[in-house]
Design a protein around this nucleic acid. Structure first.
Length: 830
RNA sequence: GCGAGGGUGGUGAAACUGGUAGACACGCUAGACUUAGGAUCUAGUGGGGAAACCCGUGGGGGUUCGAGUCCCCCCCUUCGCACCA
């Protein structure tokens, strides 16, 4: 038998090198077997290393990968590094070391810590997005998007933090503040590269129906895309002074309220403001426009703030009612949504209502509620019956929308339109640590893509790469990088000096793992065809929109280009909950509540860390770390050890009768089958905490049984031991392997980790006798034990003969007698 | 404000399509063992009560033989979005 006492340290030292030598975690190349691609979100290897919080997803995906391997799947479970990007660069700046160096140090630390948890990654497929042989292909995808008209350059306002001296990505602006300084940021107008993701809006929306993702994530994407169906209608305005006619196109989802328009609003940023301002109003309007530009985004968008605006001094004609209404500018209208111009209907829009009340503008009711009168003191925003709306009066408003759309279309002044809230993806960064955008600017030929055979455009090694704050990236200061020749005319030209958003790197990395060393293509089509889409994708909900939307977009572009045959990259998605410190707060160095895998493995061992990560609580909810609760798992491992190594054999007592022994063994066999079913289904269904509980129940049942003489060594006992170790293998790999060996099984059939996953028999789950609680008028009054196959009539007779039942039924009428098979008996009396 | 989650013992949590609320643990209580340990084992542990019973899943109503689960109203809380016309 094995060592006397469970010694996790010794087991780790023993098995780690053996498994490595045996190549236990290498992905199989037999493409005829069914595959399972289990992927974790692409991590940024941060300087602070892993806390146990990071293991909240790495352990569960590892457990599933291990179970799937045992179930006969060819499993791809890889890991790589999202090493390009602002966090990596900022960390390097802070340390005063080149990001290539900090990145490789951080990666080494991450790998060391992941090894502590014995995650079964196939490290031969490791990738790093900052390596030239990776970003070469990121650039290649840029060219693909460019070739398909999906990458373009345009002037745009971008967040700019004066304190950082650089532009910021949208995701680095939190509530209008810079994430590093918590100071409001403004916007600067710069020429930027964009990806035309909005062209895929409809498909990004529709295909959400085809994937197995959490509903709230789908919802967040739907809201982010923000599809709204409405109408575009052109109003006519008169330019003050010249009297020239000006088109004022507006977007509305409520064209049925168009007869209620009492004024128009143009966003302050709109160039139309200047043209529509009458000389008498110029001073006031200019002051207003300047003031609103100076406002921070929070001030502007806060909903409870009073709405402000200025009359331009000009008027527009409502093409349907013929009304002449004043035109205002007000910053509650956003320049970038719809046309940046709004028809204001105070009677039926809460914002217009608030504004109209503030500036004493007329309110005209044109929709009546189905019952009663229009509400006083607020806008009526529900559908209703058309009122005071010319020939449309009397129609239900949803019908009127169709009729009005037909009307404006036939008159050529508008049409039904769809609008989206989200915008094209701004990908240029005036930063150093990213994939250079593979474009060359030529005076004669304009912006030219770098020919694919010239990739990668290598990021030059620089010692001074601090952002300049000039709106030009650090690469602009490297003449050898900038100076080049035009791929088209061969004349002198300059390289683009912006780098790509880090999200570009993570938009295709899942395609690289199946074929991570390919130097002829980003991926091999046949291999990709076999492995993709990803079967299970696990990570934090903070990427609900950005990364998951971008990756879906790239996948669809690849599909359109005929490169892949699937339209969605991630079939099944799950988000883990956060692990808080034992004080219930987010783990952070400054709070001193960070728990690292290092200290836990040192104190309790890898198996206990793994099982405890699963046992903490349900997978998707937030949980607090607990130093006390982990002892429960630790004890469980000790108990399993003692149970199987027979350390408690001295306590064995003879069975009271042969019957008692036989029925104990039957019960053990039932429990064994229950455990197989529960662990299998609960791991599959991400209910890891109850899967661990199921193993504890099996262990408890085995403990009870093992104390009877004649159990140990019996066939039934050996089956139970075997099942226990197989079910435990994905969760506690060291303990199960050691016991597998100690019981002679490894010698016969190899590692526990290469065994077939056990299966259960449905018939073996049934108990021979069933205890029925008896409810009388909803209260449990008695319990009866009967054979499981007792017929309802016989059961009724047994129940009614019981003293406790008689007591409650006597002298009353039995209105109902309900038997829920295997569950309970319920009697209704009156 | 809008949208989506969530409120269950002293604690973390279980509970399939409406079917014994609290599985599994932590903690606690009592006992055993003892080369005295923050170890291990045994028993108990939702609250009240000697018991019969009564009460109990945020609060209040309802449907049902039966409600943590379904319906209506309200409170608290976390997370998204935040003037999207």
């Amino acid at each position: 038998m094995a060592a006397d006492r469970y010694d996790f340290k010794a087991l780790q030292d023993k098995w780690k090198p053996r498994w490595q030598a045996e190549g236990l975690y290498r992905t199989g190349n037999d493409l005829s077997r069914p595959k399972y691609y289990c992927l974790d979100f692409f991590p940024y290897p941060s300087g602070s290393g892993l806390s146990v919080g990071h293991l909240r997803n790495y352990v569960p995906t590892d457990v599933i990968s291990r179970m799937k391997r045992m179930q006969g799947f060819n499993v791809l479970h890889p890991m790589g590094w999202d090493a390009f990007g602002l966090p990596a660069e900022n960390f390097a700046l802070q340390k005063g070391v080149h990001p290539a160096i900090t990145t490789s140090e951080n990666v080494a630390n991450y790998k060391r810590q992941l090894a502590l948890a014995e995650t079964s990654y196939d490290w031969s497929r490791e990738i790093n997005s900052s390596a030239p042989d990776y970003y070469r292909w990121t650039q290649w995808f840029f060219l693909l998007l460019h070739e398909r008209g999906l990458a373009y350059q345009a002037e745009g306002y971008q967040w700019f933090c004066e304190l950082c001296g650089t532009v910021l990505a949208n995701e680095q602006v939190e509530n209008g503040n810079c994430w590093r300084h918590e100071k409001p940021v403004g916007k600067r107008k710069l020429k930027q590269w964009y990806f035309r993701i909005t062209q895929y809006a409809d498909r990004l929306l529709a295909d959400l129906d085809t994937v197995d993702w959490p509903d709230h994530i789908k919802l967040m994407q739907r809201n982010w895309i923000g599809k709204s169906i409405g109408s575009e209608v052109t109003f006519q305005a008169e330019e003050p002074g010249t009297g020239a006619r000006l088109d004022l196109p507006i977007f509305t989802t409520r064209i049925d309220t168009i007869f209620g328009v009492t004024y128009m609003v143009v966003a302050p940023e709109s160039p139309l403001v200047a043209r529509l301002t009458a000389p008498a109003q110029k001073a006031a309007v200019d002051a207003y426009v300047d003031a609103s530009r100076a406002k921070s985004e929070i001030e502007r968008t806060s909903t409870d703030k009073e709405k402000t605006g200025v009359f331009l001094g000009s008027y527009a004609i409502n093409p349907l009612s013929g009304d002449r209404v004043p035109i205002w500018t007000a910053d509650y209208v956003l320049a970038h949504y719809g046309t940046g111009i709004v028809m204001a209907v105070p009677a039926h829009d809460t914002r217009d209502y608030a504004f109209a009340r503030g500036y004493d503008l007329p309110i005209r009711v044109v929709i009546m509620p189905a019952s009663g009168d229009a509400p006083e003191g607020e806008a009526y925003t529900e559908p209703g019956t058309m009122h005071a709306s010319g020939r449309f009066t009397g129609l239900p408003s949803p019908e009127a929308i169709g009729a009005l759309n037909a009307e404006i279309e036939s008159r050529g002044i508008g049409k039904k339109t769809i609008n989206f809230k989200f915008r094209d993806w701004l990908i240029s960064r005036q930063r150093y640590w990213g994939a250079p955008i593979p474009v060359v600017h030529c005076n004669g030929c304009g912006a030219q893509p770098v020919p694919p055979e010239q990739l990668p455009v290598v990021l030059p090694s620089m010692s001074e790469f601090r952002p300049s704050g000039t709106g030009k990236g650090p690469l602009a200061t490297v003449p050898e990088f900038v100076r080049t020749s035009c791929p088209k005319c061969s004349g002198p030209a300059e390289r683009e000096t912006d780098t790509m958003d880090g999200f570009a790197c993570s938009s295709w990395y899942f395609l690289r793992f199946p074929d991570s060393t390919n130097n002829r293509a980003a991926f091999d089509r046949e291999t990709a065809q076999y492995w993709l889409p990803v079967d299970l994708y696990v990570g934090g909900a903070e990427h609900a929109v950005m990364h998951l939307l971008y990756a879906r977009f790239w996948t669809k572009v690849m599909y359109d280009a005929g490169l892949v045959s699937f339209q969605e990259p991630f079939y099944r998605l799950r988000n883990q909950g956060m692990v808080l410190g034992s004080d219930g707060q987010k783990m952070s160095k400054s709070k001193g509540n960070v728990v690292t895998p290092d200290e836990v493995v040192e104190k309790y061992g890898c198996d206990t860390l793994r099982a405890f990560m699963l046992f903490l609580g349900s997978f998707e909810t937030e949980v607090a770390w607990s130093d006390e609760a982990i002892t429960g798992i630790s004890r469980f491992h000790y108990r399993v050890w003692d149970l199987i190594t027979g350390r408690r054999d001295s306590e064995v007592k003879p069975a009271t009768s042969p019957d008692a022994l036989a029925s104990a063994m039957r019960e053990l066999e039932r429990q064994r089958n229950v455990a197989i079913k529960r662990v299998t289904q609960e791991v599959e269904g991400f209910s890891f905490n109850t899967a661990v509980a199921a193993l504890m129940e099996l262990s408890n049942a085995m403990t009870d049984t093992s104390l009877l003489a004649g159990v140990r060594g019996s066939e039934g006992w050996e089956k139970a031991v075997e099942t226990m170790l197989l079910l435990l293998a994905p969760i506690s790999p060291f303990l199960s392997e050691e016991l597998w060996e100690a019981t002679g099984r490894r010698e016969r059939s190899g590692s526990v980790h290469v065994q077939s996953w056990p299966t259960w028999e449905e018939a073996a789950l049934a108990r021979q006798t069933v205890e029925y609680p008896v409810q009388i008028n909803g209260k449990v009054r008695d319990r009866v034990n009967v054979a499981a196959d007792t017929a309802d009539d016989a059961l009724r007779a047994v129940v009614l003969a019981r003293e406790n039942v008689k007591k409650h039924v006597e002298g009353k009428q039995i209105a109902k007698f309900i038997v829920v098979p295997g569950r309970l008996v319920s009697i209704a009396v009156k």
